[in-house]
């Protein structure tokens, strides 16, 4: 369980998060939603302990920050660095092998399984610079799986990748949830959120709302979070449709085609200027 109480975090002397209180239970699948600059990434970094709260606190229960796997935004990664897919993913076993220890056969086995899950078999010796955007994102997921952690934090894992890859990786996330892992994901695409994430935290530096997707993603709340332009089309998103994620492993079938045309307009990144 992750218990966040009255959390305030300052970034370069201005408040990035203001008085956030949220409780995330073990095994939950949670989306963090908010406009640019709403403090989504800051919240992830605070949970990892990378940013010190200026007040309030975060409890991880019996777990520590060592039990957290993190998938950073891909644009912060040096994609031209001369390193193979295998070496890149092996960073996921840092906590077990550290500076020195050999990459043992059991680690190799884990690596194979991870590559298998994200459909990147046979890519071990490829240079990361040769991967497409989708393949690169699959590799990041493989590294996260290598970490074998109880809590997964993902920062915009589906930014700028195609629908097929998104669906494949959503399946990976659902697998992880079924193994009892707690998963918190920053997501820009509201359509994905309403389809696949049972729980939502809506941020705009302060907490706008949190809880089940139905109660949070209302026009009123979205408008408060800076999605004024969306409030009036929120009915087209058909939020009331029951989530099929828990009962079915395959999620790709549950993405309705008629709504997929809205994907581009539900991406708040396009409305950056308006909000700021």
């Amino acid at each position: 369980m992750i218990n966040i109480l009255n959390l305030c975090v300052n970034y370069k002397d201005s408040p990035a998060l203001d008085n956030i209180s949220v409780e995330i239970k073990k095994g939950q699948l949670v989306a963090i939603v908010g406009a640019n600059g709403a403090g989504k990434s800051t919240l992830l970094k605070a949970i990892m302990g990378q940013l010190e709260p200026s007040s309030g606190f975060i409890e991880l229960g019996a777990l520590t920050s060592k039990d957290i796997a993190y998938l950073p935004q891909s644009h912060k990664i040096d994609r031209k660095f001369p390193i193979t897919v295998k070496d890149f993913i092996s960073a996921g076993s840092w906590k077990r092998i550290g500076f020195w220890k050999k990459f043992s056969s059991s680690e190799n086995e884990l690596l194979k399984q991870a590559l298998n899950k994200v459909s990147l078999e046979g890519f071990e010796e490829r240079q990361i610079s040769t991967l497409s955007g989708g393949q690169f994102q699959r590799m990041l997921f493989a590294r996260m799986l290598m970490q074998d952690a109880d809590i997964l934090l993902l920062d915009e894992p589906f930014a700028a990748i195609d629908t097929q890859t998104t669906m494949d990786l959503m399946n990976v996330i659902n697998d992880c949830q079924q193994q009892g892992k707690t998963i918190i994901t920053v997501i820009h695409d509201l359509l994905l959120v309403s389809r696949f994430f049972p729980n939502v935290i809506l941020l705009a530096k302060e907490l706008i709302a949190c809880g089940s997707v139905k109660t949070v993603m209302t026009g009123d709340n979205l408008s408060k979070a800076g999605y004024q332009h969306l409030a009036y089309i929120s009915h087209t998103m058909d939020i009331s449709t029951p989530l099929t994620v828990d009962s079915h492993n395959e999620v790709s079938s549950s993405l309705p085609k008629k709504n997929s045309t809205h994907i581009h307009c539900t991406n708040p990144a396009h409305y950056e200027e308006k909000i700021s």
Binding site: M48, Q50, I68, Q73, I77, D78, I83, Q147
Partner: peptide
């Protein structure tokens, strides 16, 4: 190497 390729990730594990 890890710090060069993906500093955000490396900060999260070490």
């Amino acid at each position: 190497v890890f710090e060069c390729v993906d500093p955000d990730f490396f900060k999260s594990v070490s």
